[in-house]
């Protein structure tokens, strides 16, 4: 299956809480496969969250972020129906983007 990003954004009062689960191996480069060969490092470097096109969080990740990373944060503002954008780029230059509306 293609690289996926699951996003869950909810608003309560002034605060919008965003949770995201990103499908990515986040290989650290320190782990060997069954054949004893090092699995090369492969991890997301930059992940960006936007609300109505404005950046609300930039994450810089390294190989020590867990496989299929999870992140949860919140920001002020945001209404039900507003689009939340998520995009990432990894150390191999692959990228993925998605968007979801605030519930």
């Amino acid at each position: 299956m293609a690289n996926q990003i699951l996003v869950h954004a909810m608003t309560s009062g002034d605060t919008t809480t965003v949770e995201a689960l990103v499908k990515h191996p986040m290989d650290s480069g320190f782990v060997k496969d069954a054949a004893g060969k090092i699995i090369p490092a492969h991890y997301i470097e930059v992940i960006e969250f936007t609300h109505m096109g404005k950046i609300v969080l930039t994450g810089y990740w390294g190989p020590a972020v867990s496989k299929n990373p999870f992140i949860k944060f919140s920001f002020q503002g945001g209404k039900s129906g507003d689009p939340i954008g998520v995009s990432w780029v990894d150390n191999k230059g692959e990228t993925a983007t998605t968007s979801a509306n605030i519930m």
């Binding site: 969080l57 994450g59 390294g62 949860k72 919140s74 002020q76």
Partner: peptide
Amino acid sequence: ACAYKIPAGTNPAISSR
């Protein structure tokens, strides 16, 4: 492990794994 750039309006509270 990880670092974040937090713009105005975003709460300085983040959970991750």
